[in-house]
Design a protein around this nucleic acid. Structure first.
Lengths: 198, 198, 198, 198
DNA sequence: TATGAATGAGGATTCATTCAT
DNA sequence: AATGAATGAATCCTCATTCAT
């Protein structure tokens, strides 16, 4: 069952893995193809058999790992715009984020780089789409800020909560709770005085 | 009376200005010293008369612009740890952030780069210090997350709120309001059932 | 059958050859990689494919060419410490020196440079080892000086004897003769009054 | 009597001193004007007030310190070409060498550099002149080599005798003794069978 | 499916030198 | 007698990329 030497067709994936972890650790610009190749014990030229350019490696990683976000958006667009839906969006987004933590950390910490790359726009628009699904046009500005903050607090949560002690899973739950609280606040504000919440 | 050429002694500052705006726009790594020099109509070597290395340029900028954060921390450490103090910390931090928006945007968008530079640790510890001034040890994990989120929501607010329409100053006020709300929530939670709030 | 272009795999050696002759002619510091590359009709970057640094080029040359000295030391350490052995050491050293004249001339004329490089110590210790094989602890100081002088006179002989007319091979023989004479003097002094020479 | 701050007109000499010691320590090429200036707590530009170029600094040092060699040659040319004269030449040369040890060490260790500089030829011709005063045209090649070796052994002696234990002055005396011995050998060879030595 | 060899463009940095003040 | 500011040319080196094999 165990494969003695690396499985055929594996190299492409191994490149992506090593590349992502180096990109996340050192940044995109500071990671050279030589370095990636060395970690894999292949030559730089081998990378070019599998990918057209350095940027291509990154794109392929992002494409693979960002699909769940697309699926989340697709799903959400088919749901009623209730508070419960929004809470569920956040819950699922939390899962997505932690499922591809290295990638999102990379995106977060290399925004200046990513902005110039073709993936930049793509990503930004996806998060914006998510934002649109959380806030409502009639919300006050403050409540709109609450919605966007809910989203970004989860991003920040991935690396900025080191000063808080505790089990990672508990922390993640707490972060989600705070984000959901923000959405709930916005929702309550907007529907104050109404009998029925949609 | 008007200075026909650039004022004497100005070059050092002009370098910092141009460098910061290029760093913020394109990222640190993608900005070459040649580019900075060309924007200033001097030679690369002139930069080296004023700064020892490329990193040194950045350090000098950060040193100048991050002083207000130090002052804020100093001030805050002399205040009672009341809710009002914390609200005021956030208000002042908001001011600081917008007073040096380009720098903070740079720090935010180039974290991977900054992490490896000597300023990385410096900055991280300052923000952590601020965080410590907002949260209390006896807070629940959720409330601690609220405090850290309050801080980071203001960072995120500087560039992630483009999807919200409205006057920038209003937006900034709304962001501050949300951040202060988070702190207030944490405070209320922690003191629920008590007659007196400190 | 004739190779129209340079033979494959040759480049590494060609770099070493050109580098050594330029280093010897102009000195290490004054020889730029650009110059070496131009002599070879390749780009500077090509040099970096074959060698990690400029110093590395030099190290590789020294490693290759200094091996005979190691072999000489190894051989000598297995021999009895007689006068005949010492004379033979000098004879072989003479051969070694002339077999890699360019390198030794370089080492001689670039001591200040070489001293800071990693090869500096290496070389110094080898020559010291040779010196130890020539002199004996019980020798008078003068006789020890004779031994060291014997060694160094052969180095000096490689470039300092231009004021003497004559066939190079004859000159070399004469230099060796003088060196051997110095050793013989030292030996005679030390054993004066003894019946047997070891 | 003591001058509280550096004596007027001193700077020129201080530059020469610092420059020579840095040149000797690190080599000419590796010593930058910045470094010299820093050691003196002046600016690079100040060096240019006193000297026209970097090479000029070196030339001025050499001119000052090499004068004794000229005087030695002048003196020797007025003496009879006897063995005693030659011994005295060596003795005086030994004195000269140790009187300006740093300079001679520099010349010895930076030959490749010095060769390209204008002083190179100057120096070489002086040593050659000394050589001519030691050897005689009718000497055998071996004896001519003895004479040149006598000269160079004193140079080598300045730094190559570290493997010999003992008081520096004793060592210097031993080196001179060996050099004089070589000259004596040459002389004896040449006059073997003659009743009278000139 | 890869490699060995190479390139062209560009990077940061250092240097000797100049000149107005 | 010396400085502050700057330059132009050069340095070593690294990178993403290419292509014949």
């Amino acid at each position: 069952m165990a494969t003695p030497h690396v499985r055929k067709g594996d190299t492409r994936h191994r490149i992506q893995d090593v590349a992502l972890s180096l990109f996340a650790e050192q940044g995109y610009e500071k990671t050279s193809l030589r370095e990636i190749a060395e970690h894999l014990d292949v030559t730089k030229a081998a990378l070019y058999y599998h990918f057209k350019t350095k940027e291509d490696i990154l794109i392929s990683i992002v494409d693979d790992l960002a699909r769940p976000v697309d699926e989340l958006i697709d799903w959400a667009e088919g749901q009623p715009r209730t508070l419960a839906t929004k809470q569920e969006i956040l819950r699922r987004y939390s899962e997505t984020l932690w499922g591809a933590a290295e990638l999102f950390r990379f995106m977060q910490e290399n925004q200046a780089t990513v902005r110039e790359l073709s993936i930049g726009e793509t990503f930004k628009s996806k998060i914006q789409a998510l934002g649109e699904l959380l806030k409502e046009p009639e919300y006050s500005m403050t409540d709109q800020v609450r919605c966007i903050t809910a989203l970004f607090s989860m991003h920040a949560g991935m690396f900025a909560m080191q000063s808080i002690e505790g089990d990672p899973d508990d922390k993640r739950a707490a972060i989600l709770e705070v984000a959901q609280g923000l959405i709930a606040d916005a929702h309550r504000d907007a529907h104050r005085g109404q009998t029925d919440t949609p």
